[in-house]
Each structure stands twice: as C-alpha cells, then as structure tokens.
C-alpha cells in the first residue's frame, strides 16, 4: 500500500510544470524514504532528478517499493482538476496498474478522485558521481529566468563565466551580442534576493539556451536557484522545494570542436 498526502497540492502542480516540457513520461519511484524521479530528456542532453522526502508529506506510507510509470500529459490533466488550496492524496495498491489522486477542498465540502492508468517504462538509472564543483552560484530564481529568457533572443547558446568578482552570462548571434554581469551582493538583508558565489577555480562553460529555459519552469518552486559548475562536466541547476525536497537538472555542456 502506498499513500501520500500533501496539504498543498500546488507544490505537486508546480513540480509537474517543472518537468513536463522536458519529459513525456517518467517513473516515480516510491519507497519508505519518499518519492524519487530520475529521467533524461529524449536527446540525452539533460537529466531531471526529483526528490520528495517522505517526512515532507503530511502523511506518508509506503509498505513496498513501487515504481509508477506515468504519462506526464495525463497527470497534467488530472492535476488541473485540483484547486490550488486542495489537499491531495496519492494512493496505490501494491503491484497496482493504476494510481488514484484524491483532492479535498480546504473546507472538505468537495471531494474528488481520479484514477490514472500506469505505464510500463524501461528504466535506465544513471549513476551521478559526487563532484566538488569549482563554482557554486546562488541567485534569485526569477533573475535567472529573466537572464535565460533575455539571452535566448541573441543566440542558441549562453556562456556562463564565473570568477570571484561575479558571474557573467553572455550570448551572441545575428543581431549582436549580450552580456549580463551579476556581482555578489554586499549585504544579505533579504536572503532570497542575494547573489552568492563560492569559487575554488574560475570556470567558463557554454550551454544550450533552450534547456536552461526549460529548467526555469521550476522558478515558482523556489525563490533561489543554485548553479554548480566545473570545467567540462554537466551543469547542475537546483531548486529547493520548500521543506520537502529538491529538483535538480543536469545539462551537458557544449564542447568546442
């Protein structure tokens, strides 16, 4: 028996918005420790890693490990049926071929349930090595979304260069070039608005704008985003999900030929 109750169903709606453009379907692995998802996009350029800890749910029970293969377009249809303030419960029997979503209005006067068929998906788990990153940049997530959106007008690629002084995002193309520099914030009165850089070595890497823009669909999940970079390894873009977990995106850098 699997049962997970979340008072704020809006969190799950936001999680789905954050992955549905990169992935068509995905396996949600449910265990005693929580719900995990790891999947690459179809071109194997980026990877989504989602972790929702069991202790972040209002109620959580998972007697046996359960892998739920889910079509994300179908799940989106169901999550659209939930009000933002609704309480959501996901439920599945052991070895089930379907999962049930139950939504309760806050005053408990409306209850609805939706059953969704599960899919058998071939699972390919990737081992992500522990890496000490040369640069770890934290910045407001809305600022990062704005930068990715603005620079994608100039070219297909963004160069992210990080030094002790700050981080520079650059793009160039037919109409010209663009550079956006962010310095580390001096005072951190408002933590959510801070830009902070931890640097061991300076790094400059090139990434596809299109994927960075997909990642910024996670912006409503967190006021801050964390970018981790090392030379010639995938970028990590991490959004914390309240007290419940995180979503991480990995993106392979573009390589000079």
């Amino acid at each position: 028996m699997f049962e997970a109750r979340l008072v704020q169903s809006s969190i799950f709606k936001k999680v789905l918005e954050a992955i549905k453009e990169l992935l068509n379907e995905a396996t949600f692995d449910c265990s005693d420790s929580g719900i995990q998802l790891q999947a690459m996009d179809s071109s194997h350029v980026s990877l989504v890693s989602l972790n929702l800890r069991s202790d972040g749910f209002d109620q959580y029970r998972c007697d046996r490990n359960l892998s739920m293969g889910i079509n994300l377009a179908s799940m989106t249809k169901i999550m659209k049926c939930a009000g933002n303030d609704d309480i959501m419960t996901m439920k599945a029997q052991d070895n089930a071929d379907s999962v049930t979503f139950m939504f309760e209005s806050p005053n408990q006067e409306k209850m609805s349930d939706y059953e969704m068929k599960l899919m058998n998906l071939d699972q390919e788990h990737l081992g992500i090595p522990e890496t000490d990153y040369s640069c770890v940049i934290k910045l407001p997530s809305a600022e990062f979304a704005r930068i990715c959106r603005d620079l994608s007008q100039f070219g297909e690629s963004v160069v992210i260069s990080c030094t002790k002084e700050g981080v520079k995002f650059s793009a160039a193309g037919d109409i010209g070039s663009a550079n956006i520099k962010l310095a580390q914030t001096a005072n951190v009165d408002k933590e959510d608005e801070a830009v902070s850089i931890e640097m061991q070595e300076k790094v400059s890497l090139t990434f596809a704008c299109r994927y960075l823009n997909y990642f910024t669909k996670a912006t409503p999940l967190s006021p801050q985003v964390c970018l981790s970079m090392s030379a010639e390894v995938p970028l990590v873009v991490e959004y914390k999900i309240g007290e419940i977990g995180h979503i991480r995106y990995y993106l392979a850098p573009k390589i000079e030929e």
Binding site: V45, S46, L126, A252
Partner: peptide
C-alpha cells in the same frame, strides 16, 4: 563551432 555534449559520456548507466 560547438557541439552539444550528451550526458551518457559523463554518467554511467547503473
């Protein structure tokens, strides 16, 4: 020119 790398070369399939 730059080419897009793939994750398979960085992460091992378990």
């Amino acid at each position: 020119t730059t080419t897009q790398g793939r994750l398979d070369s960085f992460f091992k399939v378990i």
